[in-house]
Design a binder for these strands. Structure first.
Length: 597
RNA sequence: GCCCCUGUAGCUCAAUGGAUAGAGCACCUGCCUUCUAAGCAGUAGGCUGUGAGUUCGAAUCUCACCAGGGGCGCCA
């Protein structure tokens, strides 16, 4: 099933396909499957299919033909029987392709009407009833939240929005790391240097500073490690003072995260915590050892491991060996992840997929976790998948690290982006009130931040630099938002509501810019499906930009308010449709569509 | 040694195995008395890392190289 803008012309496409089949059967041509695509050249719309596959099959069957020539021949012959399909204005056979052009006025009317009828639902797929969980963001408590974490958070949010819109039931899961060596270090640093202090405004930033100081002090004086180990020991015995401190400070971080997610307009349906998976994880490890799947090397001073390649009888090292419990019996992330997989399916037994959006460095880890459970006979493991994305680094290929202090903090970036946006907005439009400026600054600043992340292939490394991050020109969110604002502007100025009426004819000669714009709009629903199938917000980011670009050309070339009454009414409807699609696309990216800017 | 990702215009990046490989930035030329110029139109810029293969057709699939990055038993 290929999704093209022909979704709106499905009946025509099916009619044509049927006629081609009849023609081929009558002429003894073994027709290969037909693949329909938009005609790639602008100026007119239509769908197109080719006969290369059919011709190639004939050649393989022994017919002495030149494939491209034969494809063209079939296309020419097939053109006849399909020339009288209603809604199709013109048929042509060229270079082995059969191109079918839509009747302009009918096509335009149908596209625009569909958008105006479906409004915020335009582009949405039918509900599939399929429930999918996506785990993303997973920040560490007691640490800073920096631009490196932003990618996973923004990407995860957009993927959820797209999956939902495409027709799935989505469960948004978060999995903060609330216990581990980093937390113990933090607790030690707090007790020693900041005991009794409370976080101020930027909670997460402050938590990060305490952590960075603790690591720095430890590096300066390694003797202090003994004190850290002592804190760990107290934690292991659930020392009331340490446990209480952990709970209180953990809550500070979580409150900081809530504020940050609110600022980013990201939400979650369910939270899991690694501290809760520790015990069940150890139980799974015990079970695996009992069943002989895991090897307990602790008597020999080793850890508990699973030799996955060996268990699968593989000669090549592919899944390698996984360590699932430390030699001292404490839990690793792997221990807890084993339990988490099951925990999720226990909570949501009908999950069709359980996805983990985690950076690429953890690919092997996740394939190991899922594989181990599969070997253990846990069938749900096959529904698990890791979606990986590349890191955000600093210029010079420097990886952001809270430990090294090489980070760009999210708080700083958000502040900088919104203040820059506010400045810019004021410069561009002095008519804006202070209140409007605030709204615009938030929408534009945040959008400018999110878009570059979403408009890039997940597997591609992003190098962060302030100049690019705060560049509001060109292919960026503000360009798309601006197109939305201009739509709104025209509609406000027109002050009429008659364009809401359906069945207005587009009977005048459409300008090339109009044709291009309608073409882009019509493709949006299929782009949503593609984006959902591949977990790629990039497809929506591109689509939104393409629509905005087509509108910008239209805006320049086609007067609306001052056009003659029939043209004006039709164009007002087109502008309304454009505004709706732009808003829908931006919504999928988690970017606001302002009314003014 | 094994596995994964990346290599496309000067730079940053797009491109369902299809017809003519496209944008943005930067550079140059025009366009605000006209729906907001965060804009539009145009010029210029390419042996898609290299070499083979598969295919009617390859930036896209396969293999081998080259270059960069990442991962490989007790970090997360």
């Amino acid at each position: 099933m290929s999704y093209t803008q022909t979704d709106m012309f499905l009946t025509e496409q099916q009619t044509i396909e049927a006629k081609i089949k009849i023609f081929c059967a009558a002429n003894d041509i073994p027709l290969a499957a037909l693949d329909w695509k938009p005609i790639p050249y602008s100026g007119e719309w239509g769908i197109s299919t080719s006969f290369f596959a059919t011709a190639a099959a004939e050649a393989r069957a022994g017919k002495k033909i030149v494939v491209p020539q034969r494809a063209q021949e079939i296309a020419e012959q097939a053109a006849g029987p399909v020339s009288d399909v209603p809604g199709i204005s013109r048929v042509e056979a060229v270079k082995g392709y059969l191109n079918l052009y839509f009747a302009t006025s009918e096509y335009t009317r149908r596209v625009v009407d569909t958008v105006l009828e479906q409004k915020t639902g335009f582009g949405a797929g039918p509900r599939t009833g399929s429930r999918v969980m996506l785990e993303f963001s997973h920040p560490n408590t007691h640490k800073a939240f920096h631009v490196g974490h932003l990618r996973g958070t923004i990407l995860g949010d957009a993927i959820c929005r797209i999956l939902e819109f495409a027709g799935n039931d989505v469960v948004r899961a978060n999995y903060p790391g609330d216990m581990g060596l980093h937390v113990i270090k933090w607790l030690w640093g707090y007790l020693k240097f900041h005991n009794g202090e409370q976080p101020a405004a930027d909670i997460t930033k402050w938590m990060g500073e305490v952590y960075a100081e603790a690591t720095r002090r430890l590096e300066e004086n390694p003797d202090l490690e003994a004190e850290v180990r002592a804190v760990y020991a107290r934690w292991d015995q659930r020392d009331p003072e340490v446990a209480a401190l952990w709970e209180r400070t953990r809550e500070w971080s979580l409150e900081g995260f809530r504020q940050m997610y609110a600022a980013l307009d990201v939400r979650f349906d369910v939270y899991y915590f690694n501290s809760q998976e520790e015990k069940p994880g150890k139980e799974i490890v015990e079970e695996l050892v009992r069943r002989g799947i895991a090897t307990d090397e602790r008597p020999q001073g080793g850890a508990v491991i699973v030799k996955i390649d060996e268990a699968l009888g593989l000669a090549k090292e592919l899944f390698r060996t996984a360590v699932i419990l430390r030699s001292d019996g404490t839990a690793l992330y792997a221990t807890e992840d084993l339990a988490l997989v099951k925990h999720k399916f226990a909570d949501y037994p009908d999950l069709e997929k359980s996805l983990y959006l985690v950076d690429v460095r953890q690919s092997l880890h996740f394939t190991q976790v899922f594989k181990i459970l599969e070997i253990a006979g846990y069938e749900q493991a096959q529904k698990c998948g890791h979606i990986s994305y590349e890191l955000v680094t600093l210029p010079g290929n420097v990886v952001m690290s809270s430990r090294e202090g090489t980070v760009v903090l999210l708080e700083d970036l958000l502040r900088e982006a919104t203040s820059r946006a506010k400045e810019e907005a004021h410069k561009k439009n002095q008519a804006l009130t202070e209140e409007q400026l605030e709204v615009v600054a938030k929408a534009v600043g945040l959008g400018a931040l999110k878009y570059p992340i979403l408009a890039r292939e997940n597997t591609r490394l992003v190098t962060f630099d302030w100049q690019t991050a705060l560049d509001f020109n060109g292919q960026a969110a503000p360009y798309i938002q601006y197109a939305h604002v201009r739509c709104n502007s025209i509609l406000k100025r027109s002050q009429v509501s008659t364009f809401e009426r359906l069945n207005v004819a587009f009977d005048y000669d459409l300008a090339p810019a109009e044709i291009q714009l309608i073409d882009m709009i019509s493709r949006f629903p299929s782009e949503v499906q593609r984006a959902a199938a591949d977990y790629k917000p990039l497809i929506i980011a591109s689509s939104a930009y393409d629509i905005a670009k087509a509108f910008a050309s239209f805006y320049d070339a086609c007067p609306v308010v001052q056009a003659s009454p029939e043209v004006r009414e039709a164009r007002l409807r087109l502008v309304t449709a454009t505004k709706i699609v732009l808003a829908n696309a931006l919504q999928l990216l988690g970017i606001e569509a302002p009314e003014v800017m």
